[in-house]
Computed example of a mutant assay.
Amino acid sequence: MSTKMIFSSLKKRSVLLFLTSLFILFNLLLNYYLPAEYALDLKFAYTVDQAYAALGSLSKPDREIYKVGLLALDFPYLVVYGLLATGILYFLWGNKKLVVIPLIIMFFDFVENILIINLINNFPSQKPLLAWVTSFCTTSKWIFVGLLFFLLIIGVSRMIRLSNKPFISFFK
């Protein structure tokens, strides 16, 4: 399958709507199974002490549920949002080079998940360097998510300004 075919498929309305539905479903499941107030991957940044305090606030069964949630939900979720972001960016900008942004987000999220699982597996033993690198990956992920949102907002604004058809007509 050529990259041109992949990009053409990803920018199709039906594919984008399907990925959006999966994106919403994964968000609902993640919110249900992962403790939002203690989830390290939802914070922008955290210190070593904050990381271990968050994990310490969870019971052992809750830490196991967090780990299973990362494995069963967050890993597939990063593929879904990566494809969705790629499709929307390509739809809005028509530029394959922008795909690097969702790929960077996916990379940092993937590494972050592996490191959080390691933190959980080693808990209550503390590994400060591991916690610091985990926080670095989390912060890096969120910085690139911010860049992605900026590009999406500019892309939608640009499309509305340059098009005779309103953006909302895409969903009809």
Rank of each mutant, 00 (worst) to 15 (best):
L83F: 14
V156R: 15
K127Q: 12
V156M: 00
Q50R: 15
L16E: 05
V99T: 08
D62S: 14
S57V: 06
L73E: 01
M159V: 11
L130T: 13
I143F: 08
K172Y: 00
A53Q: 07
I168D: 01
S14T: 12
T134R: 12
L78A: 05
E37P: 08
S140Q: 10
Y46M: 10
D109T: 06
T86S: 15
I153G: 07
A45P: 01
M1A: 08
N122S: 11
M159K: 12
L70D: 00
D62A: 14
F123D: 07
I160Y: 04
F18G: 02
F170H: 04
K127I: 03
L29G: 15
D74H: 10
F107G: 15
I105G: 06
D62N: 04
S59G: 13
F7H: 06
L58M: 03
N121P: 01
F123G: 07
I114P: 04
N27K: 14
I65K: 09
L25N: 06
T47W: 09
E37S: 08
N95I: 02
R63K: 04
T20R: 09
L58Q: 05
T47E: 12
I105F: 13
D49W: 09
T138W: 02
K12F: 13
I88M: 14
S135V: 11
L83V: 00
S57C: 09
G56Q: 00
